[in-house]
Design a protein around this nucleic acid. Structure first.
Lengths: 340, 340
DNA sequence: ATATCACTTGAATACGTATTCAGCTTAGGT
DNA sequence: ACCTAAGCTGAATACGTATTCAAGTGATAT
């Protein structure tokens, strides 16, 4: 049973035309006289022909594939992002080669190498940091890179984040207006721009009112670390009356420690505010007040920019910040006269 | 600035050898005399050469890529699976091309076509159903397929699931021993084998004790549908004293309705049991008693079988069922003398 | 009627690698 | 010393497509 894969040449013979004509029929934008097209399509259908994407990519240099590297999938924000990315890219005719990489340089390095070997047309890195050596290599190979939810000072590297500094400031203002005085922060990982920026905006917001946080602890994007931090905060002499947590994922852990372990009332005894507005934040069990990170718009911005850079390699890099509102729910005291 | 991609031929010239020799150096298993190898490797490093995976795949017919199709990423069980799959496949030298597909035939069809165009070596479908027409096509193209967490009667289709019937039965026995008498079931989608099998085992388990569920409602794997079902159950004349929910994801929604909307005590007024044992089930907020679906072992089994089918196309299909224990927490009354 | 042009088509080639096969070198056996 | 076998290497080719370019067709303009 030979049953070889059916090739463009087979179709050509069947249809009585040349191989290039078959190619043209299957290449959008190429013109072929209707009668030929019909003969080719009929033959293709009869034989079950589909162009070999590998061979096509080899010659065009366009793999129509985007590399996606993700670090934290346990944070549901990123599964939302993954889902939206998948649809958005597929709509534009691109496929996704995905890697889950720990945030270690060695891991990321290897993964990027793999992506380059596969001639990806572009790379999106969600919440993973990248070394300068690697960005240089990408520049050399002319492969566009988008940092998603992670900034970098490098001016010719495109990043898409939410307006983290602003977001942090909004939280500070809300808590101050709510009359809180002993405000603590369990931050996102301080090795990431997201964690740093939110903290900075938050501290600036407090400073504008002449306040400063009574404590800042690095929650490392981890439930365990954040829970431990929450316990520590209440074991110290001066217990906070409000906690801003660097993202929702950590905030849920903090909420549980406060309510279940420490038997505190939220927001009666202490207000809690998160960041991201993942779907779970709206669940009855949490009702978390949080800053929305608009995954939809962030993804669209990222994909738009990636496409622009792919089609014109000279597209200027940009640092895109998407603004998001504070979503007021029940985990933080609501200031009198708060208008939405 | 030409700065073309550096090819095996460039390396060959630089090293003063032939292109095939370069190829052999980079093909594991091929023998080359040490001196040549060193010259080639030095030249490669100097020029920054890496083999083009596309060209390689085109000729070997092995893309070293696995297609992955996932339906429900909002259920955290599947993000766990995705993470483990990613690592397991990468360890074995395979890459993942991922698609999130709604569970519509048209969607799945298109996605599979895309995967075939890219010459994937195998396909894993997690919780998505497939038409017979499509399995035929895959068989014709000789591309192995593994159904993950979804069975099919087709005897020469490999599937990996947990022991769903057994699991359902375990839940029934636990509830019966707990003295429950008005037992309801909010099932997984009855269009999926997972949902059907769990229900069947559950009903068998009840029947063995001469019972039958007072109600069975299809939760459609959806939080909203499940919440509505829970409300309906308690709006009817005979309220249940126990509910078995088809998976944890839905069970969380049910728990919230019971506790927050209906002000019921769980497990005082009603016991709730889920299925999957996702990480969240252990959270203080839920403490969900549930049947563990061992993602690790399921993934390993799936990958092992896929590899076997890839290396020997004649590997027999199999229906693999991985057994998982009932994890007893606090959402369901614990039978007296229950021994763990 | 001829020249020009716009359109299509097909022959040849390129993409970057793995593999076949013939030829060469070297070691080993007698 | 001679023959054989084994071990490597390189020239040629294949993988399946897109693209260049020359040639062919017919239409339009002169």
């Amino acid at each position: 049973m030979p049953s070889r894969r059916v090739t463009a040449l087979d179709v050509a013979k069947e249809a009585g035309v040349s191989q290039p004509t078959v190619s043209r029929v299957f290449t959008p934008g190429m013109k072929v006289i209707p009668e030929m097209e019909k003969r080719v399509r009929d033959a293709a259908k009869k034989l079950g022909y589909r162009p070999n994407a590998l061979a096509r990519s080899l010659i065009t240099g366009q793999s129509k594939t985007i590399g996606l590297i993700v670090a934290y999938l346990n944070n549901p924000f990123y599964t939302e992002v993954l889902e939206k990315l998948s649809h958005s890219l597929r709509e534009r005719g691109y496929n996704i080669m995905i890697f889950l990489a720990a945030n270690h340089a060695a891991d990321v390095d290897g993964v990027v190498q793999d992506l380059l070997d596969h001639q990806v047309d572009g790379i999106i890195m969600a919440s993973v940091s990248i070394s300068s050596a690697l960005t240089d290599r990408l520049k050399e190979e002319d492969v566009p890179l988008i940092l998603f939810n992670r900034g970098k000072d490098d001016p010719d590297l495109t990043s898409v984040t939410s307006a983290n500094v602003d977001g942090g400031r909004k939280v500070a203002e809300f808590l101050i207006q709510g009359g809180h005085t002993r405000i603590a922060h369990i931050s996102g990982w301080q090795g990431a721009s997201t964690g740093l920026d939110r903290r900075r905006g938050f501290e600036e917001g407090l400073a504008a009112a002449g306040l400063e946080p009574i404590a800042v602890v690095d929650g490392l994007f981890s439930r365990e670390a954040s829970a431990a931090a929450a316990r520590a905060l209440f074991a110290s002499a001066q217990a906070p009356d409000a906690i801003f947590v660097g993202n929702d994922h950590m905030a849920f852990a903090v909420l549980e420690v406060l309510r279940n372990e420490l038997a505190l009332d939220v927001p009666g005894d202490v207000s809690v505010i998160g960041y991201d507005d993942v779907a779970m934040s709206a669940w009855d069990s949490f009702q978390l007040t949080t800053v929305r990170q608009p995954a939809n718009r962030m993804v669209e911005a990222a994909v738009d920019h990636l496409m622009a850079q792919i089609s014109s390699k000279e597209t200027a890099a940009d640092h895109i910040e998407i603004d998001g509102p504070l979503i007021v729910r029940k985990s933080a005291r609501i200031p009198k006269g708060w208008k939405e």
